[in-house]
């Protein structure tokens, strides 16, 4: 009976394997082709892009689109703004979330239920309900159209998720390690610095990178809160670039778009092993 089952399984897998590879190939084309297309477009000259019988690959590696995109002053300013906002947000969120996450995991308080409830609720509410009062509030204190206002909003709205991720990492550190250190006579601060922080470092890096990428990519809050062209972030500048120049400079647009997603592409490449191993899967949001 078992031999029979095994032979039929072998027979089936002889047909099944090629079909599985075929399906995987189809998935890969669907998922990877658009980026490949963006990459080739970024290297094409306007003449190549206009001609109907140009191939998929560019004739040669032409970097003019990239230099032209960088030379566009507003894109450069926008990238600077995005960097400033993302770095400041990440610093604030990490500094605030780290002690809070530690306290929520290690001390039994009622705050924990509140925090969990808040994290869930912040996912469900449509942004329109939040952005109108935020816009009015920031307008009252004169922070509309400023990068500081944007940083405040990003920090507050990245906090629940960072807190949630960090809680997971803190909970993974065995509490016995801390107790042992305390028994050895180390004070609480010393225990935190010598035992907890080093163990927490990878989780802390992952959390802050997520905060950075989320702020770097954010569009909706920036769209509402920033009207001044000098203050706009990269996603805003790119969205307006499309509106203003549209079809004319496809190559430059593709080059600028590629440069804008470079930070997140590099980041995902770095963490992809851990992601696909499922280690972060519980703590990941798009």
């Amino acid at each position: 009976m078992t031999t029979l089952a095994r032979t039929s399984a072998v027979g089936r897998s002889r047909i099944a394997r090629p079909l599985q590879y075929l399906a995987l190939l189809a998935y890969m084309c669907f998922l990877a082709f658009p980026l490949l297309f963006l990459l080739t477009t970024a290297f094409k000259t306007p003449r190549e892009l206009q001609s109907p019988d140009a191939g998929i690959l560019p004739e040669r590696l032409d970097w003019t689109n990239f230099t032209a995109a960088i030379d566009k002053a507003d894109l450069f300013t926008a990238a600077g703004n995005s960097l400033l906002v993302a770095v400041t947000t990440t610093a604030i969120v990490t500094a605030v979330a780290l002690p809070a996450a530690y306290a929520l995991v290690r001390f039994r308080t009622r705050l924990r239920a509140f925090a969990t409830g808040w994290i869930l609720l912040s996912q469900v509410f449509p942004f329109i309900l939040i952005i109108i009062p935020l816009f009015l509030l920031l307008k009252d204190i004169g922070l509309v159209n400023t990068l500081l206002g944007l940083v405040l909003v990003y920090a507050v709205w990245s906090l629940p998720f960072s807190l949630w991720m960090l809680q997971g990492y803190v909970a993974a550190i065995p509490v016995e390690l801390e107790e042992a250190s305390a028994v050895d006579g180390a004070g609480r601060l010393k225990t935190l610095a010598r035992i907890v922080l080093p163990l927490l470092a990878p989780g802390l890096v992952a959390t802050s990178l997520f905060t950075f990428i989320n702020s770097w990519n954010e569009f909706f809050f920036a769209l509402v809160l920033i009207q001044d062209p000098d203050m706009q972030t990269l996603p805003l500048a790119l969205a307006r670039f499309v509106g203003a120049e549209g079809q004319v400079q496809l190559g430059q647009l593709a080059a600028a778009a590629l440069l804008a997603c470079l930070p997140s592409l590099v980041f995902f490449l770095l963490i992809q092993k851990r992601l696909t191993a499922g280690l972060l899967s519980g703590a990941v949001k798009g």
Binding site: Y27, M28, L31, A32, P34, L35, F37, L38, T41, W216, N217, F219, P235, L238, A239, V242, L250, L253, A254, A257, A260, C261, S264, L265, F267, F268, L269, Q272, L275, T276, G286
Partner: peptide
């Protein structure tokens, strides 16, 4: 690795790319 590509791209860029 390739399956992660869309995740690494901000929505604005995804929209621009698909427009092209």
């Amino acid at each position: 690795t390739l399956a992660l590509i869309p995740w690494a791209m901000p929505p604005v860029i995804i929209a621009i790319m698909w427009q092209l």
